[in-house]
Amino acid sequence: MSSVAILAPGRRRIRWSRVVIYSIMIAFLLFFLLPVYLLLITSFKSFDQVSLSRMWDLPTRFSLESFDRAWNGGEGVIGMRGSFWNSVQLVVPATVISCILGSLNGYVLSKWRFPGSETLFTLILFGMFIPYQSVLVPLVEVLREIRLYATIPGLILVHVVYGIPITTLIFRNYYATVPNELVEAGKIDGADFFGIYRHVMLPLSAPGFVVVAIWQFTSIWNEFLFGLIITNDPQLRPVTVALQNLSGSQFTQWNVQMAGALLVALPPLLVYIFLGKYFLRGLLAGSLKG
């Protein structure tokens, strides 16, 4: 209200600036929604409605044929059903383990610092930035040695290990905001390492866990290179690899590709829609700063 009073003298100018603001925002809105529009209208078209020259028209009849083909396969298309469940089996354990590891690491690195702990943290953090091409060949060799190559547990291991830096970072920065006095008070009360973790840190950790879980869930679900190289048995293929396979095979069945893309996008989108607010709050709480 007070701002209105202050800005009142320049009302005309303000109104114009509002117009400009909204036009820019709507222009970007269209840019962001354009692919979604194409994705939706295309995947709900039946095969006889699919034509390149009418690709921007709305479907005349609502049809789920493309989804059926993308999900169950048929006519030279390998369905994504199996891959979808592979991804679920991969993502859920990997996310849970990542959360636990990250939380413990963050706790140690923020509240139990030891000589060299900052260096260790920096060294761990660097792992987040490496191009995975630079570890690919040895990775395959080692996974083969420990008999985890071409298995889902193998892929879980890889995602957990290469997820350590980001999960540690998020938790460490998050725990850094927990006042040391609380930890000290816990120590004076005679609580040990796990006691403080359970009674002081964990109750405060929920936002950290949500942020890390969402982060790991979406990034593992969406990951491609490891999935391609490590679980190349088609029965173990994650969704991203299956989608690339779908789109690599034929240009002419693009409605199926679009339906497939939508299917792959769905779980992260649902997470985003239902938990996005919390993810954003996590961001706003500063969990990702630094």
């Binding site: 996974l143 190559y149 391609l228 190349n232 048995d233 088609p234 690339q244 396979n245 095979s249």
Partner: peptide
């Protein structure tokens, strides 16, 4: 088990095949 890998006239498939061979599978 019909293990097919699409695209690139076999390029993608050969990549997958080679990692599988390298991985002893």
């Amino acid at each position: 088990v019909n293990a097919t890998v699409a695209g690139g006239a076999g390029t993608n498939a050969k990549t997958v095949l080679k990692t599988r061979l390298q991985g002893g599978q």
